[in-house]
Design a protein around this nucleic acid. Sequence first.
DNA 1: AATTTTTGTCATGAATTTGTCACACTATCA
DNA 2: TGATAGTGTGACAAATTCATGACAAAAATT
Lengths: 230, 230
Amino acid sequence: MSANILVVEDEPAIQELLALNITQAGHHPIRALSAEIALDLMRETIPDLILLDWMLPGMNGLELARKLKSDALTKNIPIIMLTARGEEYDKVRGLEVGADDYVTKPFSPRELNARIKAVLRRRAPQMTDDPIEFNGLRLDPTTHRVIGNQKTIDLGPTEFRLLHFFMSNAERVHTRSQLLDKVWGDRVFVEDRTVDVHIRRLRNALSISGHENLIQTVRGAGYRLSAQNS
Amino acid sequence: MSANILVVEDEPAIQELLALNITQAGHHPIRALSAEIALDLMRETIPDLILLDWMLPGMNGLELARKLKSDALTKNIPIIMLTARGEEYDKVRGLEVGADDYVTKPFSPRELNARIKAVLRRRAPQMTDDPIEFNGLRLDPTTHRVIGNQKTIDLGPTEFRLLHFFMSNAERVHTRSQLLDKVWGDRVFVEDRTVDVHIRRLRNALSISGHENLIQTVRGAGYRLSAQNS
DNA sequence: AATTTTTGTCATGAATTTGTCACACTATCA
DNA sequence: TGATAGTGTGACAAATTCATGACAAAAATT
């Protein structure tokens, strides 16, 4: 299970080390020398995890974390903070803004990888009972209602679960087999292509509130719920 | 919907962090540095939720949890355990003594808040003895009467409890097994489908005041009392 | 004890949902 | 331009889910 990991670190040597590590762990590093560059890169690809240096030129790590966590598009991305040695204070502040873990420099590659693995595992798409809103569409698990632009959208059980999953994990591409795992559950003797059909039904239902383009096809990969139109 | 949350944690920094989080989530933290202090505080105020550190000086978290769960006064208070990372064993023991959830340190504020929210919401929907009115229908638990549009509605005991529960938790979808739990009680050998029949009888009775559509079927999920028609 | 009410279960049929297929369509690349 | 693999779509039969009437056991009432 490979993941895209964004490395935000201004010191080239450390960044190189991090990237190497990530590659060896079977993941794919994306490098950014500053918070600004990181934000730029994220317009293209939303990473699965961010390694974020505490001290950065320009916008520092703390600010970036806060910014990311306040944006619906990025707030679900786990963040691991890289902090200088010794500052106990960091821990509190870091967790405060929503970092998921932290590593103090100097770190051992093994420790870093362990943390990455832990965080990625913990990232298990979580479907809570909280109402979710995305792009004018509102889904409430407790009342089992979906409303978009004042229109009630009628969904079958599977479509509801599918949409619930998508809204809980927006902006992320899910393969068909991932969807089968998460939405259909374990008892899957179901064909991959069945997902396509349900996607169509869901899109169809969503069209009555003008949300037909909310779920996008990523050719060769799967599907994604996104506000963007590309 | 604010709640009192008792935080039992001996490390001041973590306690501070927890308290901050709780406040930001719109709740009210009550702090205790030890299990003994916690017990003391609970003589004054019974909290709605307890965040309980696993390791504590003196009486540890596990013992406290066990103690609370064995006391009629406190056994219904949900408990979220805070455990050190990695101990898989904790989970079993913790849930064994009746903890409702657990969070491993270090935790992200978002995760913690999500759990708090979930546990608080999971709190058993309660049926009070206060008269309830909904959509022109009035139910009075003390006189055991139901009136809708000047018409007295005659209900059997089970139908009455069923309606009482629905009116106490309007708009919310309840599965058949939830209804069996809450309306029929704990020790039932009753089939799921039996609920359907009672729903029909209730609907039937409600139809004399024109409220036949008040209880709606949510296919694949359960039933819901709602004023809306869709 | 007799009667009435309440309750749980079942069988049936209606309505909806679901998985799959065949075929149309589209992007991509040689 | 064709070839090819990936995706959209309509149709359809099977499976699931629900509403309903009937019925006998249990409980409450007379």
